[in-house]
């Protein structure tokens, strides 16, 4: 299996790593959220001069993650999307859509949080 060359980090390292990348001129491309066996996996994709760097974070269910929006402003959209679709718990988000970036109040709350084929929480 071919894996992405990603740097594995812990939640406590995220802001420090993001600061270093910002100082070094890296651009946040996006944030990918994916289900893992025991929770959630978050991958932060960065670009500099068309080279990519990825930070990978493994989160347990209900575990919180700090927003990187103060360092990379564009992160707020992807973080709000992950909150909506995966139920990611992001703290310190200045623009917060309350977990409803894309879906309405009547829709399943976190439609991608469960394996494909299963319904969302609500």
């Amino acid at each position: 299996m071919r894996e992405l060359e990603a740097i594995e980090i812990g939640v406590d390292q995220l802001l420090g790593e993001a600061h270093l990348l910002a100082q070094d001129g890296w651009r946040l491309v996006t944030i990918t959220c994916a289900r893992s066996e025991d929770g959630c996996e978050v991958i932060y994709h960065f670009d500099k001069d068309l080279k990519l760097k990825h930070l990978r974070l493994q989160l347990a269910l209900e575990q919180e993650v700090p927003s990187i929006m103060p360092i990379f402003f564009p992160a707020y959209l992807a973080e709000n999307e992950a909150m909506n679709l995966y139920g990611l718990r992001v703290t310190g988000l200045n623009i917060d859509y309350g977990g409803r970036l894309f879906t309405t109040a009547e829709a399943p709350r976190h439609p991608m949080a469960r394996p494909a084929g299963a319904r969302g929480e609500e």
């Binding site: 299996m1 491309v29 996006t30 990918t32 959220c33 994916a34 289900r35 991958i43 994709h45 402003f73 564009p74 707020y76 959209l77 992807a78 494909a116």
Partner: peptide
């Protein structure tokens, strides 16, 4: 602008994850 796909597969016909980051998404800020 830049379109990015993250694809994760597990050796079966179905993919585990397809993430799409489109240029307008990046150009909203």
């Amino acid at each position: 602008g830049e379109l990015m796909y993250y694809i994760r597969a597990n050796g079966s016909k179905k993919l585990e994850r397809v993430r799409v980051r489109t240029p307008t998404y990046a150009n909203i800020p």
